[in-house]
Simulated assay, not measured.
Amino acid sequence: MNLTAPARRARRAALLVPALLGAAVVAFLAQRPLGGHRAGWNGWVGTVNGIVFLAAAALPVAVLAVWALARRRRAAGAEPGWARRSALAEVGTLYGTAPWVWMILLPGVDPGGPRRRVNLVPLHDVAEIVAAGPPATAAAQIVGNMLVFAALGFLLPVRFAAFASVWRVLALGAACSVLVEAAQYALRLDRVSSVDDVLLNAGGAALAALAARRWWRRA
């Protein structure tokens, strides 16, 4: 069914409004444990709840950035569909990846201390997570690790034909994860630099790329 331009705009608005309302609800729920101004600056940028709040609050800014970038490209002569898709892919990759990386680089209990923990045994940490907690908690931790570079894996092949390959996205996800784990170690954040994180991060990126296969940009 071919929709007219006003109908397409109305459909996009109908999808956008619930998304923005959902982001507002997430932001409200995330900021409640922070205690408002009493949380201090670290409460907003140095906690998971603070990062979730800031990410949800930034959604309207991300939407505006997609619109402005797409409009600029259409004005430069780009095909309207491609202008929107490329703008969404670029902004979405940044918006969907930066908060996760930010959370990963939050310091542990004793940042700057002498302790540096490294685990190079594949699936050792995953087995401990599964054995230590309830299934729901273990699943949440595993899925959370798989979502770190999922936006990158889903959207990068949509924007760049050079990444229209599950294996290339897998390699890129692994490389990005290794950099993050190395940063944890080098910055003495009192976090475990684990090969399991690399496996889950890269696997999540590859699965996301596979899910986006129908929208990949072809050379």
Rank of each mutant, 00 (worst) to 15 (best):
V48S: 12
G22L: 10
G22Q: 05
A7F: 06
L147C: 11
N201R: 02
P18H: 01
A30Q: 06
A186K: 03
A24V: 00
A183T: 11
V101C: 09
A7L: 13
A175G: 10
L156C: 10
V198R: 01
T47F: 02
A212P: 05
S194N: 15
A57L: 15
A68N: 06
R115F: 10
G46K: 04
A208Y: 05
G108F: 07
E79N: 11
W100L: 13
P157Q: 10
A131C: 08
G133Y: 12
R213H: 13
G203M: 00
N119P: 07
P80L: 08
D110E: 14
G81F: 09
W100D: 08
A132K: 13
S194W: 06
A87K: 06
R191N: 12
L189P: 01
I51C: 05
G112N: 05
S194M: 07
R73F: 13
W167T: 11
R74D: 09
W82I: 04
Y185P: 00
Y95S: 12
R84Q: 15
L64N: 02
L15P: 00
V109S: 12
V17Q: 03
L16K: 00
P134C: 03
V148L: 09
A127P: 05
F149V: 10
I142S: 07
L94D: 03
A183M: 11
R168H: 02
G92F: 06
L106P: 11
W82P: 00
F163P: 07
R12E: 14
A75F: 03
R71D: 13
V178R: 01
S177C: 08
N145S: 11
A131M: 10
V180F: 12
L123N: 08
A7N: 11
V61G: 14
L105A: 07
T4Q: 08
D125L: 04
L88C: 13
R71G: 15
A219Q: 12
D125E: 13
Q184E: 11
A151G: 14
A186N: 04
I129V: 15
G46N: 08
L59Y: 14
T97K: 01
W215P: 02
V66T: 12
P18M: 04
A132S: 15
A205Y: 09
R168G: 11
L16P: 01
A150S: 12
G50L: 08
A13H: 12
L94R: 07
Q31S: 09
L29M: 12
A150D: 09
P135E: 04
L88P: 09
F149T: 06
G36P: 01
L16G: 11
A151I: 05
Q184T: 00
V45D: 04
N145A: 08
A39G: 15
A208R: 00
A78Q: 14
L199I: 15
L179T: 08
E90Q: 12
W102I: 04
R71C: 08
